[in-house]
Design a protein around this nucleic acid. Sequence first.
DNA 1: TTGATTAGTTCTGTTTTGGAACTTATACTT
DNA 2: AAGTATAAGTTCCAAAACAGAACTAATCAA
Lengths: 157, 157
Amino acid sequence: MRWDEIGRTHCSVARTLSVVGDRWTLLVLREVFLRTRRFEDFQKHLGVTRHVLADRLKKLVEHGILDRVVYQDRPRRFEYRLTDKGSDLFPVIAALLRWGDRYMADEAGPPLEMVHRECGHVGIPELACPECRCAVTARDMKARPAPAFRQHREESE
Amino acid sequence: MRWDEIGRTHCSVARTLSVVGDRWTLLVLREVFLRTRRFEDFQKHLGVTRHVLADRLKKLVEHGILDRVVYQDRPRRFEYRLTDKGSDLFPVIAALLRWGDRYMADEAGPPLEMVHRECGHVGIPELACPECRCAVTARDMKARPAPAFRQHREESE
DNA sequence: TTGATTAGTTCTGTTTTGGAACTTATACTT
DNA sequence: AAGTATAAGTTCCAAAACAGAACTAATCAA
């Protein structure tokens, strides 16, 4: 199966990945969450080839994740900013960051920390149940077909 | 910059992506969270080529994310199971799922739902501050260099 | 003896990538 | 006026990764 067919499967993970599930795309998003906006800066910070960078930025704009806005005329120059839709990808980056902090950091520890502006707590956000607010792991959650997709093959557990 | 150099940068996101930041790898993980364990099943469910699948499973085992365990002798057959380290990638998959449910679902709605076993609430977990427990978005969190990486270039905001 | 299962490996042609050089528009310096 | 700098790309080519299909190996069942 080619990658461009992946977005047509009935899976929200696959569909999301069809848009951002690319090595460099996710790093471009990391950068943009760190407030990088310009082509040259993305290129310098990431070390990605200009060719690939141009392609990824274009796709992110096409998907409404970034806006390409003029920041100067004469000569005309553009910068890239997160849309609300793009901003909602923050949990993906945060989850990658949190795992990397835990399993991939070297002796010096993680290079970045986050502060919750409201309460001042330092730490990467974690997954919580929207109802009871307690932290959840894979074991705490049971996945099942949504009602519309549920045939009568509902196994009990 | 080649991809295998990405894991040596000082960024937990990049380091995580150097391990799982590959189109198919993340889909393999989705499958394993849905309890798929065997080569043939991964291949059937994902439509990935056997070649790529074999490679990705091998790498996930090398990184300690999956265990390759014998489930039968004569002939010897193996299956793949999440380790604890692998299980901790759940937030990444959940974040991708949540975004896809919101932005990529078709009219029928998301195909999968999740239930919090403990409180019975249906919904995909969300990001929360580990301290005050309230839901956080990108705007609520401020990123800054960790103490060990902080020179005296600490901008106020 | 033939076919089925499972977990791979091998082969070949196509696509994507990395790296470097080039382009375009304009301002700034000398 | 000529030359240099900056920013945002585009173009080119060789190298790496991928898709699709066929093949292998070990064993059991009919």
